[in-house]
Computed example of a mutant assay.
Amino acid sequence: MTEDDHTAAIAVLNDACRAEPGALWVLTPGVQALPKADQAKAVAAVSDFADFSEANDPHGERDFGAFEVGGERLFWKIDYYDLDLCMASPDPADPAITKRVLTLMLAQEY
């Protein structure tokens, strides 16, 4: 697999993570404190996020985004762990050995 193919595979898996209701998402305390309607808008914004550019996605993995909801700036990011969630995954392009964790946070919590 070429480096470009590897990156493309990671991007596809990250897109699936953002769109998959059963994926492992972590909402930080700041996001949990938002009104429920804003929380729902924020989750939808992550799922629908498509504003990737060189500035926010320099590696082409589609693993980070920023947006605003209800006057708050929010960030989301995806981290890659082994299946036990103890260490980093040795290969984020391989879903058989990688568990993705998406964290949704207020920008000030970063």
Rank of each mutant, 00 (worst) to 15 (best):
16 A>E: 15
17 C>T: 15
18 R>L: 07
19 A>F: 03
19 A>N: 12
21 P>R: 09
23 A>S: 15
24 L>K: 15
24 L>H: 13
25 W>G: 05
25 W>C: 03
26 V>R: 13
27 L>P: 00
29 P>E: 06
29 P>H: 02
30 G>V: 01
30 G>Q: 05
30 G>A: 05
34 L>C: 04
34 L>K: 05
40 A>L: 13
41 K>R: 14
41 K>F: 01
43 V>H: 08
44 A>W: 10
44 A>E: 15
46 V>D: 09
47 S>H: 10
48 D>N: 15
51 D>K: 08
52 F>D: 11
53 S>N: 07
55 A>P: 01
58 P>L: 11
61 E>C: 08
64 F>L: 14
66 A>K: 14
67 F>H: 05
69 V>L: 09
72 E>D: 08
73 R>W: 09
74 L>F: 13
74 L>E: 12
76 W>K: 02
76 W>P: 00
77 K>Q: 11
77 K>S: 13
82 D>L: 06
84 D>H: 03
85 L>D: 02
86 C>K: 09
87 M>W: 07
87 M>C: 09
87 M>N: 07
88 A>F: 08
89 S>C: 05
91 D>G: 04
92 P>I: 00
92 P>A: 04
94 D>H: 02
95 P>I: 07
95 P>A: 11
97 I>L: 07
99 K>R: 15
101 V>W: 05
102 L>T: 07
102 L>E: 10
103 T>S: 14
103 T>K: 12
103 T>I: 09
103 T>C: 11
106 L>R: 13
106 L>K: 15
106 L>V: 01
